[in-house]
């Protein structure tokens, strides 16, 4: 097994340039997909037999929820790689994920509430999915809080990496316990958020939006990664030609 590709990804200057060239390749497809999915979801897709047009919130809620969890997983794995192989770039990736993940977790939370309100008659109901997203938001805020509380960048990287790993181990357990908690105290009508069987003309825009959001995340991650790599390599020689 030739590990040089692995080392290449470890070398900051290479990653800095690579991220720069790749960004547009993710940004443009993401934009096109999102706009297309927007049109598909709002105009082409027929109204839901139960919720009418209200169900179209799924096109922004589900992708946000998907990103919030996926980004945390990416953050935790990058943190693990950074901690185990002591790779600054991996810590830079983890640092780049935090802001994106937290923002989409908040978005999925609010869109979830907006979606549920007509059904439940109140803005907040202890629906297990909403609660799980809320706890995930706290995990993100804890990560960001710990990072900002430690001045030395190297130490902040490693300490927040431990937290991210502890968090990702606990996340499924927290979700299980919230579901379990919900099942023993039957809360008001639990609304089916994700459609198990959706006709294609409803499902297609959703899949496109999910892919669009994912590509969007990668594009934003690449831009933030360049910033984080620069922050960690300020003294390095290669920074001179790149910056001046």
């Amino acid at each position: 097994m030739d590990w040089t590709w692995f080392h290449k990804f470890g070398s900051p200057p290479h990653v800095y340039r690579l991220a720069g060239t790749l960004t547009p390749w993710f940004a443009w497809p993401a934009g096109i997909l999102i706009i297309a999915a927007l049109y598909g979801g709002l105009v082409l897709a027929p109204p839901d037999y139960q919720q009418g047009d209200g169900f179209r919130i799924i096109y922004v809620h589900a992708p946000s929820a998907w990103l919030s969890t996926m980004v945390y997983a990416v953050m935790a794995s990058a943190a693990a790689v950074g901690l185990i192989w002591r790779m600054k770039v991996a810590h830079a990736v983890a640092a780049s994920c935090a802001g994106v993940g937290a923002s989409f977790t908040a978005a999925s939370l609010v869109t979830g509430m907006l979606w549920g309100e007509p059904m439940w008659g109140t803005w907040w109901v202890w629906d297990p999915r909403l609660v799980a997203q809320l706890v995930l938001l706290f995990l993100f805020l804890g990560y960001i809080g710990l990072r900002s509380a430690i001045d030395d960048l190297g130490r902040a990287d490693r300490a927040s990496a431990v937290l991210a790993i502890v968090g990702v181990v606990n996340l499924p357990i927290i979700r299980y316990s919230v579901e379990w908690w919900n099942s023993i105290h039957q809360t008001p009508s639990v609304m089916k958020m994700d459609r198990p069987s959706m006709p294609m003309d409803m499902l297609a825009p959703l899949l496109m939006m999910l892919l669009g959001f994912t590509l969007f995340f990668v594009a934003v991650l690449l831009v933030r990664l360049r910033a984080e790599v620069l922050r960690r390599e300020r003294g390095a020689a290669w920074v001179k030609e790149v910056v001046s």
């Binding site: 706890v135 805020l141 509380a149 927290i174």
Partner: peptide, 22 residues
Amino acid sequence: LTLGVRRGGVLLGLLTLPLTVP
């Protein structure tokens, strides 16, 4: 985790409480 942090008490709560949900 909050060892070297000034006023780490509040942060300790924010880090730990979500993990105590189960």
